[in-house]
Design a protein around this nucleic acid. Structure first.
Length: 414
RNA sequence: GCGGGUGUAGCUCAGUUGGUUAGAGUGCCAGAUUGUGAUUCUGGAUGUCGCGGGUUCAAGUCCCGUCACUCGCCCCA
């Protein structure tokens, strides 16, 4: 490392990027509030066990992708690779089963040790929504609608397709899994090396293989929908009917699966074509087995996470920063009086930047570069008259305004 | 972890079959203009050519290694 540079896969976020990401978070927080969600901020690290237990010791995620470390107290800790486990842990820690349903919204950094790509970083940021308690399919509809509305408010819904599937209840899921393993085992020699390995580790993922030879075999594979029991079928029908009634368009994608077995019923991803290989901008589903697996009560849950960087990249426009007013004092008396004037303006909600150095030409130049909407020039003449020169930087017009009425004047101008 | 592409000024990039002091645009700084911005004019500064090694009389240019970025694979919570 010959230069000071950020750790691989991490970024300093500022300027346009920061504004775009902030817009994504603020939009989500506003939309989720209208569904009754409240913020839950969990720590960005937990005991490693919190993430390890639901995922399984041997999974790639645990062995390869977690940022784990031992602290000075000899505790095994891990930077969160996702929100759900931490939220579930908080639910258990706080004894919240007394107050279900719990609707939680969260956002912030998450960490995965992966090779960076477009839209995939080692430290990145997610939006997260979880609803804990309800096991009825109507909740799934609400959660998906929340995702869709967030995308609409961001103006990106038109570039995203909701892929929806059901994994069924545990019985249906296990029956399908067995059938799938049986089918693929019969075609084992024709499968790619990767998929032969998946047959042992995660057979459902073979459905998703990008290799042509695999796809030819997948076409003839048993369909999950053929293995759903009546209860699972009804559950899914209620979800799809509800989405249609709510006006949320979707496609039924039978190849959309989840590897881990605490997932049940609904699985969904909002996918875009415009971000390259990392096309999922929101992904989630129902995880009725998770909280119990973590050591808590048997409480159902459904949730999703959205990639803030990916959503920010999709925005058509960068939100503009607030246009400040520039305050330019000329001379010591004006500089001193300016402290009072600026504070009063800020108290009135006006963004004020005081530029006190250099000649006025230079300061006007800086005001212009900062996209200031007005320049306030205060010199000895104005001080003695109790006024201030207000120059509108869009029109170029300027006029003397009484200092007493300054805040009102600036607010009227917008 | 695996494979492809790319690293030259703050930014975007040029740089000939290896050749002497590495350029342009833009941005930045100063002046024309010490109470008035965007245009204009004049002047100015800025590079370990990603880093390390090798070949050569000579390397930004060729070779090897390494780091970073980027696109994809794997995996995906």
């Amino acid at each position: 490392m010959s230069k000071l540079q950020p750790v691989r896969g991490t970024h300093d976020i500022y300027g346009d990027d920061a504004r775009r990401m902030r817009h994504v978070v603020e939009t989500f927080a506003r939309v989720a509030s209208t569904y009754g969600f409240e913020e839950l901020a969990t720590p960005i690290f937990e005991f490693t066990e919190v993430f390890k237990r639901p995922l399984g010791e041997a999974s790639d995620i645990v062995s390869k992708e977690m940022y784990s470390f031992r602290d000075r107290g000899d505790e095994e800790l891990t930077l969160r690779p996702e929100f759900t486990a931490g939220v579930a842990r908080a639910f258990i820690s706080g004894g919240m089963q007394q107050s279900t349903p719990c609707r939680f919204m969260s956002w912030g950094p998450v960490f995965r040790y992966e090779r960076p790509q477009k839209g995939r970083y080692r430290q990145f940021h997610q939006l997260n929504a979880e609803c804990l308690g309800p096991s009825d399919p109507a909740t799934d509809v609400d959660m998906i609608a929340l995702g869709y509305r967030t995308l609409m408010e961001l103006g990106v819904a038109g570039d995203v397709v909701l892929n929806l599937n059901t994994l069924g209840d545990p019985d249906s899921r296990n029956a399908y899994r067995s059938a799938l393993v049986e089918y693929f085992s019969d075609h084992r020699d024709a499968l790619s090396e990767d998929s032969q390995r998946r047959l042992l580790t995660n057979p459902l993922r073979i459905l998703d293989s990008k290799i042509e030879g695999d796809q030819a075999i997948v076409v003839g594979a048993p369909k999950l929908s053929g293995y759903l029991n009546d209860q699972s079928r009804d559950f899914f029908r209620t979800v799809t009917n509800g989405l249609e009634r709510a006006g949320v368009p979707f496609v039924h994608n039978e190849r959309l699966v989840r590897g881990l077995d605490y997932y049940t019923h609904t699985a969904f991803e909002f996918i875009t074509e415009i971000l390259g290989a990392q096309g999922t901008v929101i992904g989630g589903g129902r995880y009725d087995g998770l909280i119990k697996k973590l050591g808590g009560p048997p409480v159902a849950g459904v949730g999703w996470a959205g990639g803030i960087e990916r959503l920010a990249m999709m925005l058509a426009e960068t939100p503009t920063a607030v246009r400040p007013v520039f305050f330019l004092p000329m001379g010591d008396a004006a500089l001193l009086e300016g402290f009072k004037i600026c504070e009063e303006l800020r108290g009135a909600g006006i963004t004020v930047i005081a530029d006190r150095t250099g000649n006025i030409s230079k300061r006007m130049n800086r005001a212009n570069k900062a996209s200031a909407r007005a320049a306030l020039i205060l010199g000895d003449d104005e001080l003695s008259a109790g006024t201030i020169m207000v120059k509108n930087l869009d029109s170029g017009d300027q006029q003397q305004i009484s200092i007493d009425g300054l805040a009102k004047h600036l607010k009227a101008q917008g």
